[in-house]
């Protein structure tokens, strides 16, 4: 037990040290991009758009933009660090050690969660320069941010396990994650869509996450919060089980 705990703390410390050592690469880009969204969509365009679901447009998009930053950051952090460890073979440092696979998994996820939440908090802080943030349910904000970064850290880990070359860790964020995020109700309410597109949107997992977070901040949601929370919880459990099973089989890391 002691070995597992110290091993986990070591992996977590290693990740935190990395995040702060190269902070212009790990913390700034998402903050920069989201700030541009605030300026362009929130201030310049949003000022002419009136209200959406009873809120100023900038207030409406802020929760989604925070989640977008958390999602992309936690995903890319874990996929990049895990694949890089695989590529340089320093993953062997962990595989030869007495650390159990769930400790190795948790250690890697901790990096994604910490970086994801840090970026989320930074983006939230920056948003205060553009508007006054409403807080509907503070505990739900914390839980959603944590669960979202956990969920997408698991996704990033899975991507890292399957990846054989660096291209493989950029394909999913570029061609799947980003389109799903943009179409996940960050900039609009799915209630504004025609029925057909609204039904299609319900298959987008990011829609649920954005809506839970929007509910925790503004108190409004396009879909049932209980359904969305259940969906998120079940996805985390399933992804955790898949990642751990693949690790136990040595998929992509042992001969």
């Amino acid at each position: 037990m002691k070995v597992q705990w110290i091993g986990f703390l070591t992996l977590m410390r290693k990740e935190v040290v990395r995040v702060f050592r190269i902070w212009p690469q790990t913390l700034l880009p998402s903050v920069m991009t989201t700030t541009l969204y605030f300026v362009i969509f929130g201030n310049f365009m949003g000022a002419k758009m009136g209200q959406l679901e009873g809120f100023k447009y900038i207030d409406f998009i802020i929760p989604g933009l925070i989640m977008m930053a958390v999602i992309t950051t936690s995903y890319s952090n874990v996929s990049a660090t895990f694949f890089s460890a695989k590529f340089q073979r320093n993953i062997d440092e962990l595989l030869v050690s007495p650390m159990k696979n769930h400790t190795i998994l948790l250690g890697h996820l901790s990096g994604g969660i910490i970086r994801g939440c840090l970026v989320g908090i930074l983006v939230m802080a920056v948003s205060l320069f553009f508007t006054d943030i409403h807080v509907h349910n503070f505990s739900l904000i914390i839980i959603t941010m944590f669960m979202t970064s956990l969920l997408f850290s698991l996704g990033g880990f899975l991507n890292g396990l399957y990846a054989n070359k660096f291209d493989d860790i950029s394909i999913i964020p570029t061609f799947i994650l980003t389109p799903l995020t943009y179409l996940g109700g960050v900039f609009y309410s799915v209630n504004l869509l025609p029925d057909f597109w609204r039904t299609i949107s319900l298959f987008n997992p990011i829609l649920y996450i954005v809506n839970i977070f929007r509910f925790s901040v503004l108190g409004i949601s396009d879909i049932s919060i209980i359904t969305a929370s259940l969906y998120m919880f079940v996805t985390v459990v399933v992804l955790w089980a898949i990642c751990l099973t693949l690790l136990n089989r040595g998929f992509g890391i042992r001969s």
Binding site: Q4, I6, T10, L94, S97
Partner: peptide, 14 residues
């Protein structure tokens, strides 16, 4: 850091 990390993976306190 490489050495201290490796020790940590074996349960050696920092």
């Amino acid at each position: 850091q490489i050495i201290t990390n490796q020790a940590g993976y074996y349960g050696v306190p920092y």
